[in-house]
């Protein structure tokens, strides 16, 4: 059986209505499992609207008088710069990813050079390598002085947004190439042939004919790239610091610096995850394609 069937052949699979009580039991089970899995998120969300006293109250109150004080307080302790840094890092790295990945995927799908498969697999192998294998030299290369015995100079990218953007671009580039490639392969060949017969140059063929046909793929790829960059912790934690840190680092600093204020922590967590959760809900159908490197459609 082919791994990926075209969209039309995929069909929602449902049991007939023959057995009413069995399907009611099924629905109840599914809802219970779904709510349990979702509970930590719901609890975090609710706690953000409680007072600090209510936040530690047991049994947990599900009905209470909501307050927006925590949100006001979180912005009062400089949440916004971290939030802004996260936006800048994920959007600019995504822009850079698309700039590099679109032409690359285009060639790998529609204008294949020799050895295109080696290139494809080289890209993906860079994504599978654990960042732990690169963090030590990155820290040294990014420092102001670098390695005195090697180049004698550093890139001075520690604690800068540029440093994070460079790494996030490298992190998302392979996924974008693979994902875009899988969308581009679905472009019918006769469309391309027709364009070439009409004498369209490469640039016109790409921007006016092919890319508009894969708009959903472009959007999904950007979403995936933004999601990964936004949630990234390891590089941000190791290579950025005050002033250039992103939302996950705010969390760490909040916990170590502010003592235990659960309601405020929950409010900042909620704000930190909200943009991505919304984006992910919208893109959930495409998510699997990105996460499986385009192997599952």
């Amino acid at each position: 059986m082919a791994m990926a069937l075209p969209g039309s052949a995929r069909r929602r699979v449902g049991r007939g209505r023959s057995n009413e009580s069995a399907s009611t039991a099924w629905a109840i089970t599914a809802w219970i499992v779904g709510l349990i899995a979702f509970f930590p998120v719901l609890y975090m969300f609710l706690t953000g609207f409680k007072s600090e006293a209510e936040a530690v109250e047991l049994p947990p109150k599900l009905v209470f008088n909501p307050t927006f004080e925590n949100y006001a307080d979180v912005f009062g302790i400089d949440f916004w710069p971290f939030f802004r840094n996260s936006i800048v890092a994920s959007l600019s790295s995504t822009a850079l990813v698309m700039l590099l990945a679109v032409p690359c995927a285009y060639a790998l799908a529609l204008r294949r050079p020799k050895k295109w498969k080696d290139v494809l697999f080289f890209f993906i192998s860079t994504r599978f390598m654990p960042p732990a294998g690169a963090i030590v030299p990155l820290y040294i290369l990014f420092s102001a002085n670098g390695d005195p015995k090697l180049f004698g100079f550093g890139l001075d990218l520690l604690n800068t947004m540029q440093g994070l953007v460079i790494l996030y671009t490298a992190m998302n580039l392979p996924i974008a190439v693979w994902m875009l490639r899988s969308f581009l392969e679905e472009v019918p060949r006769d469309v391309l042939d027709a364009a070439r017969v009409d004498g369209a140059g490469l640039f016109r063929e790409m921007t006016q004919i092919v890319l508009p046909m894969i708009t959903p793929g472009l959007v999904a790829t950007m979403f995936i790239s933004i999601i990964f960059a936004w949630n990234e912790f390891f590089f941000a934690f190791n290579l950025a610091s005050v002033g250039t840190s992103t939302v996950p680092i705010f969390m760490v600093r909040f916990v170590t610096g502010e003592g235990l204020f659960w309601a405020k922590l929950a409010a900042s967590c909620t704000m930190g995850v909200l943009p991505i959760v919304l984006l992910g809900w919208v893109a959930q159908r495409q998510l699997v394609r990105g996460l499986s490197m385009g192997a599952v459609k």
Partner: peptide
């Protein structure tokens, strides 16, 4: 809706999710 609920833990920033688990759960 259930599918959306089930997907959500994967979308939550690991840092935020871990802190929620650590303190509140």
């Amino acid at each position: 809706i259930v599918r959306t609920l089930l997907i959500t833990p994967f979308l939550i920033m690991p840092a935020a999710a871990s802190l929620t688990w650590k303190y509140q759960l």
